[in-house]
């Protein structure tokens, strides 16, 4: 039905469902009433009775197309994710057809159903917002024929006669005044209000303080977590007390015999039992060059070993001896200069 204009008159006729003649619509058509000006309102779908030809709507085709779009969407999302983030899962191909199939089946169905629904909604909303209130008697089983005719036409007489002949229980006229019935304005406001509330609700996740609370460091922020007590040396070993006790010397000597003497010899002169098999001579620890090194330098050598021209000549002892033990060994080596 087209929009209601100022010069139109609405004719409404109520019929008993049993008395509604199927030929009425055809007769009205012959009387020159255009297809778009006729409307039949009923409390349930009418299938067999003579009908106004409904405007065609290719809902099936729309559903199929939407389904295909959904299918493609599913393939792109599931397959595309797999291509962009190629993670091997249980020896399956990167783009696994069964997985893509399952996802795209669901998206296909979702798109088809939702699109059908939305199309239907749009169609229902695009129906004329009729100025005529719906007759409550329709819900009790009557059928109403609503015709919009030019108010000054001769057609009007003819149509009324036809309706009477067809056995209308009641015929009423209605001058179209405003195309917006009462309540529609309220309708729109309620709808708009609900949409605004829904939109605001969408913003609720934005109240999350996740971004502020995230655990990344700010620049120059002090460390939040400290190392366990004793795990970081707080005193430089250079500042160690220079006095050596006899105990430390004895301990150093014992460790030297176990770890060092097979190369450097028991007296530290570099003539241990394995020297014959070595490519590099072990250093004589009593040599002034060695004795001239600082305790720190000796400690480094014991800790990290020694490489000459890229070849390891002495192994590292940091895994074998604790820091204390290495200190003892260094103290003992230093004491070798006083024979």
């Amino acid at each position: 039905m087209g929009p209601v204009t100022e010069h139109e008159i609405t004719v409404r006729a109520l019929f008993e469902p049993s008395g509604y003649p199927e030929s009425l619509v055809e007769k009205l058509r012959q009387a020159g009433v255009p297809e778009g000006a006729m409307e039949i309102r009923s409390p349930l779908p009418l299938h067999e009775t003579g009908l106004v030809r409904p405007a065609p709507l290719p809902l099936h085709r729309i559903a199929i197309i939407a389904g295909l779009v959904g299918l493609v969407l599913g393939v792109v999302v599931a397959g595309g994710t797999a291509i962009l983030y190629p993670i091997m899962t249980g020896g399956k191909p990167i783009v696994a057809p069964p997985v893509v199939g399952i996802i795209s089946f669901e998206t296909m169905m979702l798109m088809a159903i939702v699109t059908t629904f939305v199309t239907m909604l749009i169609r229902l909303r695009s129906e004329r917002r009729d100025a005529v209130e719906r007759d409550p008697r329709i819900d009790d089983g009557l059928i109403e024929v609503v015709l919009s005719l030019p108010s000054n036409s001769v057609q009007l007489q003819l149509v009324q006669t036809l309706l009477k002949q067809a056995g209308a229980l009641e015929i009423r006229h209605h001058h179209a005044t405003s195309s917006i019935p009462p309540g529609v304005e309220l309708d729109r406001r309620t709808t708009a209000g609900m949409l605004v509330v829904a939109w605001l609700l969408c913003g609720v996740p934005a109240c999350s303080r996740d971004m502020q609370d995230q655990s990344s460091y700010q620049s120059q922020e002090a460390p939040r977590i400290h190392s366990p007590k004793g795990s970081v040396p707080r005193d430089s070993r250079l500042l160690r007390k220079s006095l050596t006790t006899q105990e430390e010397l004895d301990e150093g000597a014992r460790l030297f015999r176990i770890n060092c003497s097979h190369c450097h010899g028991r007296d530290g002169t570099g003539n241990g039992p394995v020297v014959a098999y070595l490519k590099e001579q072990p250093a004589d620890l009593r040599d002034p060059y060695v004795q001239g090194l600082s305790e720190a330098a000796l400690y480094d050598t014991v800790t990290y070993g020694l490489a000459v021209e890229g070849r390891d000549v002495m192994p590292a002892f940091q895994g074998e001896l604790s820091a204390e033990e290495r200190h003892s060994v260094v103290t003992y080596v230093k004491s070798l200069s006083q024979p």
Binding site: E39, I40, L57, A112, M120, R123, E127, T191
Partner: peptide, 26 residues
């Protein structure tokens, strides 16, 4: 008012019934 919004301006015309039934059938 809630029903008014939810009924989508339904008046029971044949167009509406036909659209509804087709949608249900799909």
């Amino acid at each position: 008012p809630l029903y008014r919004v939810l009924s989508l301006g339904w008046t029971g015309t044949q167009n509406q019934w036909q659209v509804l039934e087709t949608a249900l059938r799909i």
